[in-house]
Every structure is written in C-alpha cells, then in structure tokens.
C-alpha cells in the first residue's frame, strides 16, 4: 500500500481510546507498516473531548492530519462524531457508537443533546452505526465497549489479513483476553 491511511479516533476522556490505538498499532507494526500516532494528554482527559490519530503506510512523516484528511473516523460517543467530522475526507467512512455522554452544558440544562446526529451524519457520509455499549453489556462487561468498536474499525478498514486475535492476546492482561476476543468478534459482526 503506497498511500498513507489516516484514522482518527475520538471520544470522551476515560472511554478507552488509548488501548484501542495501542492494539491497532501493534497489529499494523506486525504487518510491516510504518506507523505514527499522536495523542493529546492533560487537561482534556478530565471528561473533555479526546482524540487520537493513527497514520500508517510505507513511509509516514507527519503524525497528525488536518481537516478533510481522515480515511476513517471512529467515534466512541455520538456527538463527538459530529464535532470532528470535518477531519474526515468527503468520501471517508465514519463508524459511530450510538452512545450518549452528556457534556456539562447539557447536564446542567443550558443546552440540549442534539437529536439528529445519526441522520445528519448519514446524509453526508458513509456511516456505520453500532450500539457498542449494548453489545458489551450482552457480552458481560460494559468495559469491553472499546474493543467492540475496535472490531468495527477493523472491519471498516478491511485489515482482515492481520491476526487480530493474536494481537489482542499479546496486548491485554490474560484474564481480560477471552471476553475481549468475544467483543472484537461482535464488533466485526455488527
């Protein structure tokens, strides 16, 4: 693959985005890609909006992208997808978790959670919606929500030739492996 691919992961502090990017990169490295990733630490982690960018290809220079450059946007929270959508290429794909986390202005009723996010996304972009929270609960642990999303990410990217189950085994604590493999497979199916 000559073209560098750009993935933007967005969500809310504490949703487990960093783990997903770690697993993703481990797989990409094993497959022999040059990889760069960039994450923002600090203030934003206190319940703010967070992003991680992953870029891979034959040779990658910049670790960050500008607007209109992501091939894939994976949003762990519904409204965050709309916040970062300008970073997606017009022909790119957005994978969005149908899961709402109200921000402080919404919680204190100064503003309302936007009602039409999914429709608005689908109108302009190739949109894959999934209920990763529900799926994770069915699997038996809400905390596997991020790996369900990871499954959907892999499916959207078409990176099926990488042995992701093996990568999950190598990067997760032993007692969390089985449930997360289930979560991953669920994400691939949804």
């Amino acid at each position: 693959m000559k073209e560098t691919k750009n993935i933007l992961l967005v969500g809310v502090g504490g949703q487990g985005i960093i783990l997903v990017s770690k697993v993703l990169i481990a797989g990409l490295m094993k497959a022999g890609y040059d990889v760069k990733m960039s994450e923002v630490h600090g203030m934003a982690q206190r319940g703010g909006s967070v992003t991680t960018q992953v870029r891979f290809g034959e040779k990658v220079y910049s670790s960050i992208i500008g607007k209109g450059q992501a091939d894939l946007l994976v949003s762990f929270e519904k409204m965050e997808a709309a916040r970062w959508i300008e970073y997606l290429k017009p022909e790119g794909t957005v994978v969005v978790n149908n899961y709402e986390i109200p921000s402080m202005p919404i919680a204190t009723m100064k503003a309302e959670y936007p009602q039409n996010v999914l429709e608005a996304l689908a109108k302009e972009f190739k949109t894959v919606t999934l209920d990763a929270g529900q799926a994770a609960i069915e699997i038996g642990n809400i905390r596997t929500q991020n790996i369900v999303l990871f499954g959907a990410l892999v499916k959207a990217l078409g990176l099926n030739d990488i042995d992701w189950v093996e990568i999950l085994k190598e990067n997760l604590p032993a007692k969390m492996v089985d449930i997360n493999i289930k979560a991953f497979q669920k994400g691939m199916e949804l």
Binding site: V12, G13, M43, A44, Q45, R46, G47, G48, S49, K67, G68, M79, E80, A82, R83, I85, E86, Y87, L88, P90, S103, M104, P105, I106, A111, E112, Y113, P114, N116, V117, A120, L121, K123, E124, F125
Partner: peptide
C-alpha cells in the same frame, strides 16, 4: 471538507 447539519454542544473538561 464537509460538515454535517447538527448543533454540537461544547464538551469542556
């Protein structure tokens, strides 16, 4: 770039 038609609310830390 393309945007979508919805009102995104700020998410301050």
């Amino acid at each position: 770039t393309k945007t979508v038609d919805t009102d995104v609310v700020a998410r301050p830390p």
